[in-house]
């Protein structure tokens, strides 16, 4: 009496296993269904050297500056195939440039020649959200947001860039003058798109795309020099003009290769 159900169960298990094997075989055979790994590596630089948070640098105006915090939200990070639909690498990513930042994505076999993302968080995830409802590992959670949640207004800072400076620029002087550029809110969302030479991704490949950030260009912008002696504080509200300048310089500091 008891052996019949057991036999039935064993048969079902065998069928399931066989079914899975067949499916796997089909996947392997179908072009475009197999994936390779693409690593999107954020590479912050300061005057052509790797950026180090806490190190002392010089800006173009002769100030000595130490960047203590450089954090930024990126959203809808997509790699773009030569033809076909974009491949979502990350919906929301918080890059803390005190450490390494890499996004990994399994990309279908194919050719890719572009990358798109937003600096900042899409409005539906930015305003009127409650960070306490996200699991700790989520970049929008209390823990995961690393202090970028704006408690007085809800929403998140998109870019946090702050530290201290010696405005006299004398070696050995203490760095006593604070600067803080905290930029956020929906109007400051910046969509960016880059193209690069075609990258062929085959099954099992591991390829890399670099997002270069010229941290020095946030202050020493190509078209806009920010003088931290006079323009050293924005929490966006209260100094939206400076927030806009900082965000524009930051967006212009980014390239992809």
């Amino acid at each position: 009496m008891n052996s019949l159900p057991r036999l039935l169960l064993i048969c079902l298990c065998c069928l399931w296993v066989v079914g899975c094997k067949d499916k796997k075989k089909d996947e392997d055979k179908t072009p475009g269904k197999t994936t390779g790994k693409v690593k999107i590596v954020f590479t912050p630089m300061y005057h052509d050297q790797p950026f180090v948070a806490g190190a002392v640098y010089h800006d173009n105006m002769g100030h000595r500056i130490r960047v203590d915090n450089l954090l930024c939200y990126f959203s809808l990070v997509n790699i773009l195939p030569v033809s076909g639909n974009a491949v979502l690498a990350k919906d929301i990513y918080l890059a803390n440039f005190s450490m390494g930042n890499t996004i990994e994505v399994d990309a279908p076999h194919g050719s890719y020649d572009g990358l798109s993302f937003n600096i900042g968080i899409l409005p539906e995830y930015n305003k009127n959200v409650d960070p306490t409802t996200y699991p700790n590992s989520h970049p929008l959670s209390v823990q995961g947001s690393q202090g970028l949640f704006w408690t007085w207004n809800t929403g998140y800072m998109f870019l946090k860039y702050d530290g201290k400076a010696d405005l006299d620029g004398v070696e050995g002087n203490p760095l006593l003058s604070p600067f803080a550029f905290h930029v956020g809110d929906d109007p400051f969302l910046v969509p960016l798109s880059f193209s690069f030479p075609t990258l062929q991704v085959n099954a099992g490949d591991e390829k890399q795309i670099k997002i270069i950030i010229r941290v020095d260009k946030i202050i020493d912008g190509e078209n806009d020099q920010i003088n931290i002696e006079t323009d050293n504080l924005t929490h966006t509200g209260g100094n939206t003009a400076l927030a806009e300048r900082v965000m524009t310089n930051f967006a212009n500091s980014i390239s992809v290769e």
């Binding site: 009127n128 409650d130 960070p131 306490t132 209390v142 949640f149 408690t151 007085w152 207004n153 809800t154």
Partner: peptide, 16 residues
């Protein structure tokens, strides 16, 4: 909540 009204719930206000 808050004097500029930027926080929509009492729960969120507690974080500030």
């Amino acid at each position: 909540f808050m004097m500029e009204g930027g926080v929509p719930t009492l729960e969120l206000q507690a974080i500030a």
